[in-house]
């Protein structure tokens, strides 16, 4: 087989504006795990081998580099580890379909609040929680990694738009910050 050269979704370096930093992530393999009807038990056995279990709605789990994010009814994305051989679920390789960004810093909530119509404050959105919603009009999976860091997963074909939207808002907030002081 020919040796293919992996390219990132977009050619963009890390950028910091105001209180937020945006960077490309290399999350590794991404697999959709969609449980069959009555597949929960068998699916759980497969995930056990990675030290993970199927996440409850809106939740995620982490074990080393492997993460599993709830993405829908009876569906989760396994990220950062190859999917184990498992019964009870349809496994689809999605690695090439997604772009992942990390957004971090004290100003993350302000940035996201301008683009996302869910409550991203720490009181309503704890570390480890996941929502599937829109980044402006683009589909997005959003996971809070810590108090001041989010992971953003969006369609790879929309990576440039998503990056642009985020960087614009970061710039606007940074400009606003200079007015205040």
């Amino acid at each position: 087989m020919p040796e293919l050269i992996a390219k990132s979704a977009i050619d963009a370096g890390p950028v910091t504006k105001g209180g937020a930093s945006l960077a490309l992530m290399e999350p590794g393999p991404i697999s959709s795990i969609a449980l069959y009807a009555h597949g929960a038990e068998a699916g759980a056995k497969g995930l056990e081998t990675l030290g993970l279990s199927f996440p409850a709605p809106g939740q995620s789990q982490e074990n080393g580099a492997a993460r599993i994010l709830w993405t829908g009814r009876d569906q989760a994305f396994l990220i950062g580890a190859e999917a184990p051989a498992m019964e009870g679920a349809a496994i689809t390789d999605q690695s090439d379909g997604w772009a992942a960004f990390s957004l971090s810093g004290a100003g993350v909530e302000d940035v996201l609040s301008r683009l996302v119509a869910v409550d991203v404050r720490l009181s309503a959105f704890a570390p480890g929680q996941v929502v599937r919603t829109g980044l402006n009009h683009m589909p997005m999976i959003l996971r809070r990694a810590s108090a001041e860091a989010f992971e953003i997963y969006t369609f790879r074909s929309m990576a440039r738009s998503a990056w642009h939207e985020l960087e614009e808002v970061m710039g606007q907030l940074a400009a606003r910050g200079t007015l205040k002081s």
């Binding site: 009807a37 929960a40 699916g43 759980a44 199927f54 409850a56 709605p57 009814r73 009876d74």
Partner: peptide
């Protein structure tokens, strides 16, 4: 309500 009914892997099923 969900048209599809409760999720198999969701809250209450896997916990």
């Amino acid at each position: 309500e969900l048209v599809a009914g409760p999720a198999a892997g969701g809250k209450g099923a896997s916990e």
